[in-house]
């Protein structure tokens, strides 16, 4: 069968279109939606509107970054929404010791959840989808057990974190931007980042090249858990309340959508950080556009479904 290996790829016009779509489709779509809104949506260009959109999208961006890393290793992390809820519950539980302690506790809980999922994937060899499904169910339950009902709180530090702006930019958005840069740096410039994409691109080759495959895998899930916890803390501080039953619900779906739409292939070996951010923005813009034009929210989900299918189909056409 060695004779097949050398087969060069023949590109048809359709394949080229699909490739273009996968590479730049998300940018083009965001641009098109922006233009549409500038022309047809009243008050769209106002600063307040942009602020609202960015604040709303920040938690999605942060969880999507973690998801992008996991998907880069040919994995998936269904537990991110539940981890957000757990982080929120931890904040409430430890707020008595002060906001810093509460935030650290939340982050530790997120990392621990990620470590549990990562251990199942890397060391036991469970499929990522099952491992993180078990985690999703268990952690959402745990969050609900810890904080059974909506709990409001008043903590100056958290209020600052949730609503203060620096140089006109909300802190929440700044955190998301900083994390985006950090993750981009991780992927582009660190040993770990290179090893991560290599493990996703060809696990057998990575092992033969002496890469610490298992350590890379567990670390990726820990990072995903951490980022989800950050998103959970931010969302909680904005709400000034913790509601583990609803916080982060279906967040895993939004994150997967953002990553896939952003052009990161589900087959691993590649992480597109900016594309992921754009994917999250696209969904946010779409939602905002529909709302502003008095189209029901139900449309968003249907359109989102079509976009996911199109994105995955484009990625598939590229490989075939």
């Amino acid at each position: 069968m060695a004779e097949l290996a050398a087969a060069p790829r023949v590109w048809g016009g359709r394949a080229r279109l699909l490739t273009w779509l996968q590479e730049y489709g998300v940018y083009a779509s965001v641009l098109a939606l922006l233009l549409f809104n500038v022309v047809f949506t009243p008050h769209f260009l106002e600063v307040a509107n942009f602020r609202t959109q960015l604040i709303q999208v920040a938690p999605v961006v942060i969880t999507s970054l973690g998801m992008a890393l996991v998907i880069g290793t040919e994995g998936i992390d269904l537990s991110v929404g539940a981890v957000m809820a757990l982080a929120s519950a931890m904040v409430v539980l430890y707020l008595g010791y002060g906001a810093p302690v509460a935030i650290v506790a939340a982050l530790i809980a997120g990392a621990a959840a990620g470590a549990a999922g990562g251990a199942l994937v890397a060391y036991v060899g469970v499929q990522p989808i099952v491992a993180t499904l078990a985690l999703l169910v268990g952690i959402r339950g745990m969050a609900n057990v810890l904080v059974p009902q909506l709990t409001e709180f008043r903590n100056p530090t958290l209020i600052t974190l949730g609503s203060r702006s620096v140089l006109g930019l909300p802190l929440v958005v700044i955190v998301a931007a900083v994390l985006t840069v950090l993750v981009a740096f991780l992927i582009k410039r660190t040993t770990f980042g290179r090893q991560l994409v290599a493990v996703g691109g060809n696990r057998a080759a990575s092992r033969l090249s002496g890469l610490p495959v298992r350590r890379v895998l567990i670390t990726v899930y820990i990072i995903s858990g951490l980022l989800a916890a950050v998103a959970g803390v931010l969302a909680t501080s904005r709400l000034q309340a913790s509601d583990p039953t609803s916080l982060g619900l279906l967040m895993e779906l939004s994150a997967i959508t953002a990553v896939v739409v952003g052009g990161t292939p589900l087959t691993g070996g590649r992480v597109r950080v900016l594309g992921t951010v754009m994917g999250a923005l696209l969904i946010q813009l779409l939602q905002a556009t529909l709302i502003k034009h008095n189209l029901p929210q139900s449309w968003t989900q249907m359109v989102q479904a079509v976009i996911i299918l199109a994105a995955v189909y484009a990625a598939r056409g590229r490989r075939a």
Partner: peptide, 29 residues
């Protein structure tokens, strides 16, 4: 194909793959 190249990476990253620990300082390449 199965055990050698990492198809999603560039020539450069493929060459450097196994030597990454030697080519980086405190985790930064």
């Amino acid at each position: 194909k199965a055990e050698g190249i990492v198809p999603t990476l560039s020539v450069r990253d493929n060459i450097a793959l196994a030597a990454l620990p030697q080519l980086s300082r405190s985790g930064v390449v």
